[in-house]
């Protein structure tokens, strides 16, 4: 880990401003992803701005019946919140399927959204990785790619966004509110937040360098059955091979976002009218243009079958 200077910010605006003031600064929320990467010098900020106590740890209802979630709300507190459990079951389920009890206590809402890929070559600094060192090459494409992406990937990077919570948030049409160093605020959808890799896989989000996520906003709840089915080799404490987050109505309509297969939570709204026709038809549309490797081809079938399981479960 490279040496860095450290400060504690006390308000969101101060944090954003401090970040603009200091070159190579980075926000530290829970630290469960950033410190992991710093130990390996995959990240090497020169200055850390601890945002743990900037007061963004509240969950509040919005006037329109939605929910505002502070960027620093822990995964545990978000999953345990009574309104989330009652009205946004999908979100609670996705959170509870992620990481471990200890990590969820520390992990924050914004930090979780911004966690980086778990591609094993990205994690090993001896290996070629375009995301870590732009232009160096990608060892994963011809290497061990079982966990990696099948769609939305590019010839320079096939890494996935590994998280669970964001899959639920994508299905729930969550938006992200930010503040920049100059005080300017904006709102982004998750598809606007996450970039696809193209030839610049090191650019993962559209956030500007000193832009701070302050809040995640959930629109009013969508009724229906909420299911999050995460498929992995061991039963817990593992990232998804594939996960399906779905909200399904009695008439068979609904929304579906999929994790573990793409550089961002994968949802194609235009495919959703096909949901009543069943998993096969919907998945064909959802995964149109997929380019799996030989090692992760099985994910095509796995998405369809996991969705079939979810549809089946929703009926019961």
């Amino acid at each position: 880990m490279k040496t860095f200077t450290y400060e504690r910010a006390s308000t969101p605006a101060e944090a954003a401003a401090a970040s603009a003031r200091t070159p190579g600064a980075k926000f530290l929320a829970g630290g469960t992803n950033l410190l992991d990467l710093m130990k390996l010098e995959i990240e090497a900020p020169q200055h850390i701005i601890d945002i743990g106590k900037i007061g963004l740890n509240k969950i509040e209802s919005t006037p329109t019946g939605g929910l505002r979630i502070g960027a620093l709300v822990s995964n545990t507190n978000l999953a345990a919140h009574p309104i989330v459990r009652r009205d946004y079951g999908l979100l609670a389920r996705a959170l509870l399927a992620g990481a471990s009890g200890q990590l969820r206590n520390k992990a924050t809402t914004a930090g979780n959204l911004l966690q980086r890929t778990r591609c094993p070559y990205f994690y090993d600094t001896n290996q070629l990785c375009n995301k870590r060192v732009p232009g160096s090459g990608c060892a994963a494409i011809a290497g061990f790619s079982r966990q990696l992406g099948i769609i939305g990937t590019s010839t320079s990077c096939i890494a996935t966004y590994p998280g669970d919570m964001a899959v639920a948030m994508r299905a729930l049409d969550a938006t992200v509110e930010t503040v920049k160093a100059n005080g300017a605020k904006r709102t982004l959808s998750l598809d606007q937040l996450y970039r696809l890799p193209g030839q610049t896989p090191h650019l993962e989000t559209t956030l500007e360098k000193n832009e701070l996520i302050t809040t995640v906003v959930l629109p009013p709840p969508v009724g229906g059955v909420h299911i999050y089915h995460k498929v992995r080799d061991r039963s817990s404490y593992a990232f998804a091979l594939v996960s399906v987050g779905a909200i399904l109505k009695k008439d068979g309509t609904g929304r579906v976002a999929v994790g573990g297969i793409a550089p961002r939570p994968w949802r194609i709204e235009s495919a959703e009218p096909l949901l009543p026709s069943g998993a096969k038809a919907f998945t064909a549309q959802l995964l149109k243009g997929a380019r799996p490797t030989k090692e992760n081809e099985f994910k095509l079938a796995l998405v369809e079958r996991t969705l079939a399981a979810v549809l089946n479960e929703a009926k019961h």
Binding site: Y6, R8, L28, G30, G31, T32, L35, D36, I48, D50, G52, T76, S100, G101, Q102, L103, N105, K106
Partner: peptide
């Protein structure tokens, strides 16, 4: 009173 992984936390936090 909450459990965390102390390896992924700076003392300063």
């Amino acid at each position: 009173n909450q459990r965390i992984n102390s390896c992924l936390s700076l003392a300063l936090q």
